[in-house]
Design a protein around this nucleic acid. Structure first.
Lengths: 112, 112
DNA sequence: TCCTCTCGCAACCTTTGGTTGCACATAACC
DNA sequence: GGTTATGTGCAACCAAAGGTTGCGAGAGGA
């Protein structure tokens, strides 16, 4: 089963708000709950909770700076998540391909 | 923004139970709520709800057969979902690569 | 016909994403 | 140094989603 390897990473990345947060953190080179919430349709507290989730699964790490808490993407962990997405996608792709081949074989058999 | 193209497909595929259901449907060549629930850690009703979600976003279609309701994967739609996964993964990959290049450039600048 | 199997519906519980409100700490400004 | 403003965290509360149990309704086989 290539699925269920690590559901935590998946579900962390599965939330659309969290995906956009990762996007913002990547393009902006990090950010705080406040700055992120300014570019998102949710409140700072919601963002803070999401940051907590991302931090728990290791997708971001914190850098306390004065009264701010700056978050940055953990590139290695994100790369791992991307690899998982690719892996699941590849598995499904392979099964779709196989089904297609079988269907074509049946078709050829019926034609012949 | 390559993200947020179609959050419905994503969230449909984002649930681990639904992913396993799609797996089962692909490998088993379709199935019913009852047969699927036998291979999953949840009840038939939970599976039925998930099938409803998958059906709503077009990832499966129904084939009423007597007292059974057989579900099969819509291959085109699943292929679309796979493409989306790949797209998001690729976007993040690209950003990670760019960050890496910039970091390396800075490193070279400091060294020289 | 009767029994069984599969299904759908409704009520309920728990988790999770989201909100508001408030208290605390740190930075900036006079 | 004291006041004001900004950034966080915590707690209570709300709504939606995943999951469960219980029940009533059709379709098939004995």
């Amino acid at each position: 089963m290539s699925v269920a390897v690590d559901d935590e990473l998946w579900s962390a990345v599965g939330d659309p708000t969290r995906r956009r947060m990762l996007d913002l953190l990547l393009t902006g080179g990090g950010g705080t709950a406040t700055t992120l919430s300014e570019h998102l349709p949710v409140t700072r507290q919601a963002v803070a909770k999401h940051l907590g989730v991302l931090h728990r699964v290791g997708l971001v790490h914190v850098m306390p700076a004065g009264r701010e808490r700056r978050y940055e993407v953990d590139e290695a962990q994100l790369a791992r998540a991307v690899a998982q997405l690719a892996s699941v996608g590849a598995a499904w792709d392979a099964r779709l391909q196989r089904i297609k081949r079988i269907a074509e074989a049946i078709q050829r058999g019926q034609e012949g």
